[in-house]
Design a protein around this nucleic acid. Structure first.
Lengths: 281, 281
DNA sequence: ACTATCAGTCGCACGCTGTACGAGGGTGGG
DNA sequence: CCCACCCTCGTACAGCGTGCGACTGATAGT
């Protein structure tokens, strides 16, 4: 770049015509969309204001006219992708609705792997996140949850989606890092696990017995779906117990006790381990 | 030395610490411990090699003799804190053991909030993480899980711990950012929710009805414990169903069907919504 | 038509980051 | 004594987020 003191290259004649950009003006929406694209491509590590500016064919600092800074931009990007999660209509039964939301949420998180980390850093309270929570609360309310149970149930499913997406993202990153070709992480992990077999007996044994099958697993989606179904089972069971408790309370007028437990047909039948009705709160 | 070939067998975990001769003042362990302390204090944002060097009263680049770089150092720090999670002995019943591990894991994650984000970025396969997984696998194997169910069950509880810790960390960060004094985030959120009440009816109504009670909640631990109990209920139920299926299969020789469902006493009793036995895979 | 205003863009600069490199200091074995 | 090696660190470079003020082009007021 010519220096400012240079009388020739800085003169009007020599100065090139102002570079015309595709669009005459930037806009916040355009910036956020480009930011999401850049984040999708390079993750949080590969994202910088300068690069984003370049992607928009604009100076890096031009963005600061529309956006307060990188932090706020990440908030906006996070809410933008939250808006990608489709929400079921009110006619869908609560369990299907909840499962669908959780699954679509996880899909979105995997698509935009950089968001996962942000969930430990900033609360999602943008308009799209609110719309999301609104629907989630509606689903669980219609299911029969009330008060803090609603928050508990929905945050449980959310936590699962985030956690499952995190482990999937970590796995994907590891495979990608280790030669994008045929190298499976499983194979890479193999000698490592084998070398440590004496230190980690359960792990090593499990690994030996299941390593081959793992190749055929459909992978993270199946794992996440299994988790979501178990969670929904647990929530349904809890709802059922609560219902039984309420009924027996109105019938006898006494304080509810452990009957709900047995009514659910779980206690003492699995036979695998003794179990107390409640955790040690 | 850039590693382009094999990220695992060439990684930190396989490489022994450099034998110290003479009287060096730094050591890998010392560096990692200081890194954890610095990360605890300032999070990922406040962590830099220069600052870590200063904390150790050493030059920033001295660390590079013991550690390959920031990335590897984060791996080491992650494994270091994984070692803080206490693991129950083999005499503890599986459900208590699993609940305990999940709870302690979550506690650790909250204590070291910076780790949470790392779980979406790198796989935890250091020695301490392996020890952790080994115990977890042992617990679920003893419970009656087998094959991929073991992986599913343990990763379910792990995902929950990570996700729950993430939302707690986000909440804590928000409260800390908004005037460290008495300003609760709830109060800050209040006018925001109120102003958007028409857009988010369920949310707003729920908020109105439960805002006051929220003050009395014991908070994130209770939420996480609720989630863990639901998950364990769901897992136990699944185990029970599997058991019933196996029994009926050996008795009749036919293929197992939905009887396990009803034996569990859940289906069709909640009365809140119709339910199909399985999601739409 | 001429000028004043101003929304929008961007170059520059500052202090920060990770880390490659090589010059040095200290200590051991010969 | 010197040499060889382990360890430390100053310097340097490319890149980061962003505050500041100079600039441009269009529009509004006269």
């Amino acid at each position: 770049m010519p220096r400012k003191t240079d009388p020739i290259s800085d003169s009007v004649w020599m100065r090139p015509e102002r570079p015309r950009r595709g669009r005459p003006q930037l806009s916040r929406g355009e910036i956020v969309t480009a930011a999401v694209a850049l984040l999708d491509a390079g993750g949080l590590e590969g994202f910088s204001m300068r690069r984003l500016g370049a992607a928009l064919e604009a100076g890096a600092t031009s963005l600061y006219f529309y956006v307060d800074g990188k932090d706020e931009l990440l908030d906006l990007a996070m809410d933008q992708v939250m808006g990608e999660v489709p929400l079921p209509g009110p006619e869908v039964a609560w369990r299907e609705a909840a499962a669908g939301i959780a699954r679509d949420m996880r899909k979105m998180l995997v698509r935009h792997h950089w968001v996962i980390g942000l969930f430990g850093t900033r609360m999602a309270i943008g308009p799209n996140a609110m719309r999301f929570s609104d629907r989630f609360i509606g689903v669980f309310t219609s299911a029969g949850f009330s008060g803090r149970d609603v928050a508990w149930a929905s945050s449980l499913l959310m936590s699962h989606a985030v956690g499952a997406a995190a482990s999937e993202a970590a796995y994907r990153r590891a495979t990608d890092a280790a030669g994008a070709e045929q190298a499976e992480v499983l194979e890479l992990l193999d000698p490592y696990v084998a070398s440590q077999a004496d230190r980690f007996p359960h792990y090593a044994q499990w690994w030996r017995e299941n390593r081959i099958d793992m190749q055929e697993w459909s992978g993270p989606e199946e794992t996440a779906d299994f988790g979501a179904e178990r969670i929904l089972d647990g929530l349904e069971l809890w709802l059922h117990r609560k219902h039984v408790e309420a009924v027996s309370a109105t019938r006898t007028g006494g304080t509810p006790n452990g009957h709900a437990q047995e009514a659910a047909g779980v206690s003492g039948k699995g036979g695998t381990a003794a179990r107390r009705p409640d955790g040690d709160h």
